[in-house]
Amino acid sequence: MNISQIANELGRDRKTIRKWLQRSEPAPYQRRVRRPSKLDSFKDYIRRV
């Protein structure tokens, strides 16, 4: 199976698959940091209305 076929099957870009295959081991999971929303200061008001 070539890189294009793997990319099509997984729904990823060919460059992403190539990068994954070049690594000697899987990258550790990194949780994304949640940024505050622009609406955070208004959420109480929105819920009351």
Results as ranks from 00 to 15, higher is better:
residue 1 M to Y: 09
residue 37 S to L: 03
residue 16 T to R: 02
residue 23 R to H: 04
residue 14 R to L: 07
residue 18 R to Y: 15
residue 9 E to R: 12
residue 32 R to L: 13
residue 18 R to S: 15
residue 37 S to P: 04
residue 34 R to G: 05
residue 22 Q to S: 07
residue 27 A to T: 11
residue 31 R to G: 06
residue 12 R to M: 10
residue 39 L to P: 00
residue 1 M to T: 15
residue 28 P to M: 04
residue 28 P to C: 03
residue 16 T to D: 11
residue 22 Q to G: 12
residue 4 S to H: 06
residue 21 L to K: 03
residue 19 K to W: 09
residue 24 S to E: 15
residue 3 I to F: 08
residue 13 D to V: 08
residue 26 P to C: 02
residue 40 D to T: 07
residue 10 L to T: 10
residue 38 K to E: 15
residue 32 R to S: 14
residue 8 N to M: 08
residue 19 K to P: 03
residue 5 Q to Y: 11
residue 23 R to A: 02
residue 11 G to C: 07
residue 6 I to H: 06
residue 1 M to K: 13
residue 18 R to P: 05
residue 34 R to A: 11
residue 2 N to H: 15
residue 17 I to C: 01
residue 4 S to V: 11
residue 19 K to Y: 13
residue 8 N to E: 08
residue 30 Q to I: 03
residue 13 D to P: 06
residue 12 R to H: 07
residue 33 V to N: 12
residue 16 T to H: 13
residue 14 R to M: 06
residue 33 V to C: 05
residue 37 S to T: 08
residue 30 Q to H: 00
residue 35 R to F: 10
residue 1 M to F: 15
residue 13 D to L: 08
residue 13 D to E: 15
residue 8 N to R: 13
residue 29 Y to I: 08
residue 35 R to E: 14
residue 21 L to C: 02
residue 29 Y to N: 02
residue 29 Y to C: 02
residue 4 S to D: 11
residue 22 Q to W: 03
residue 15 K to I: 11
residue 23 R to S: 04
residue 31 R to V: 09
residue 25 E to F: 10
residue 37 S to Y: 00
residue 25 E to T: 05
residue 10 L to N: 07
residue 2 N to C: 15
residue 40 D to S: 04
residue 20 W to R: 04
residue 28 P to N: 08
residue 34 R to Q: 05
residue 11 G to Q: 07
residue 8 N to D: 06
residue 9 E to Y: 10
residue 25 E to D: 12
residue 3 I to L: 11
residue 31 R to F: 10
residue 24 S to H: 02
residue 22 Q to D: 11
residue 1 M to D: 14
residue 14 R to I: 03
residue 40 D to F: 00
residue 21 L to Y: 00
residue 35 R to Y: 07
residue 25 E to G: 01
residue 35 R to Q: 12
residue 7 A to T: 04
residue 8 N to F: 03
residue 20 W to Q: 04
residue 6 I to G: 04
residue 35 R to M: 13
residue 40 D to P: 00
residue 12 R to A: 03
residue 23 R to Q: 14
residue 3 I to K: 01
residue 13 D to I: 03
residue 12 R to T: 02
residue 17 I to G: 01
residue 23 R to V: 03
residue 20 W to V: 04
residue 21 L to I: 02
residue 11 G to R: 08
residue 23 R to I: 10
residue 36 P to E: 04
